[in-house]
Computed example of a mutant assay.
Amino acid sequence: MLDDICCFDFETSGLSPVEDRVVEMAAIRVIKGIQVSEFRTFVKYDGKLVPKITELTGITDEHLVNGMDEKQAFLNLRRVMGPQTLLVAHNATFDLAFLHYAMFRISEITFANPFIDTLTIARDRTPYPHTLTDMCNKYNIDLNGAHRALADVEGTLALLQAMHAEQPVDNFVNKLSYVEKYGKPVWVPAHAELSPVVWRK
């Protein structure tokens, strides 16, 4: 099931996949356990980043001045992903929504790849908290530079591999959980299976 995967991550200008934009992206493609490609770039952004985003990520407006054009960035990303590769992200609800809205805005198409959300697995298997940093700590994975796209991709990939070694994750394909008190996500893929979870400390 993990013979062909692409782990990816977005850093964005805000939380809305409709109104906000991806400002940094990274992806790693792994086939039969061997990394075959890696892609990362800043993405040109016309607006101004709010201080909270810079504080969280370290990304500034100066980083984005020479970023890749949005359309070219997403075309490159989709080449790395491929049409049927299993996509992997931590809090995939967030990243998949940004992927969908960007693709639709650029070319009026979306994606149909299967996916796995390591956050959904974490919520099922381990107690709160479930941030990528917390989960990497639980599995003794070094996560250097959290909230930067490539670092988060490397952490998520290692987390997936550790979880799969502990107990196969096959039954989590295309499954997304959401915290019931916050309601359903704004958008999920048509092939997603949604399930609510009760948020507890």
Rank of each mutant, 00 (worst) to 15 (best):
residue 1 M to L: 10
residue 1 M to N: 05
residue 5 I to N: 01
residue 6 C to E: 02
residue 10 F to N: 07
residue 10 F to W: 08
residue 13 S to V: 01
residue 13 S to A: 09
residue 14 G to T: 08
residue 14 G to H: 01
residue 15 L to C: 11
residue 16 S to A: 10
residue 18 V to G: 06
residue 20 D to I: 09
residue 26 A to P: 08
residue 28 I to M: 00
residue 32 K to V: 06
residue 33 G to M: 03
residue 36 V to Y: 02
residue 36 V to L: 06
residue 36 V to T: 14
residue 41 T to K: 04
residue 41 T to Q: 05
residue 41 T to F: 02
residue 43 V to S: 06
residue 43 V to W: 05
residue 44 K to Q: 14
residue 44 K to F: 12
residue 48 K to V: 14
residue 50 V to S: 13
residue 52 K to V: 12
residue 56 L to Q: 08
residue 61 D to N: 15
residue 61 D to G: 09
residue 62 E to R: 15
residue 63 H to R: 12
residue 66 N to Y: 07
residue 67 G to F: 10
residue 68 M to E: 13
residue 70 E to G: 09
residue 71 K to W: 06
residue 71 K to V: 06
residue 73 A to Y: 07
residue 73 A to Q: 04
residue 76 N to D: 12
residue 80 V to W: 03
residue 82 G to C: 03
residue 83 P to W: 04
residue 84 Q to I: 04
residue 85 T to R: 03
residue 90 H to W: 02
residue 93 T to A: 14
residue 102 A to V: 00
residue 105 R to G: 00
residue 112 A to F: 01
residue 123 R to E: 05
residue 128 Y to S: 12
residue 139 Y to W: 15
residue 141 I to S: 05
residue 142 D to F: 11
residue 142 D to T: 11
residue 142 D to L: 09
residue 143 L to W: 03
residue 145 G to E: 11
residue 145 G to N: 06
residue 145 G to K: 03
residue 146 A to F: 07
residue 147 H to C: 13
residue 151 A to F: 01
residue 154 E to N: 13
residue 154 E to P: 00
residue 155 G to P: 04
residue 163 M to W: 15
residue 167 Q to K: 15
residue 169 V to F: 03
residue 172 F to D: 07
residue 174 N to R: 11
residue 175 K to H: 14
residue 179 V to G: 07
residue 181 K to M: 06
residue 183 G to C: 14
residue 184 K to F: 04
residue 185 P to C: 07
residue 186 V to P: 06
residue 186 V to W: 05
residue 195 S to F: 13
residue 196 P to M: 12
residue 197 V to D: 12
residue 199 W to F: 13
residue 200 R to F: 11
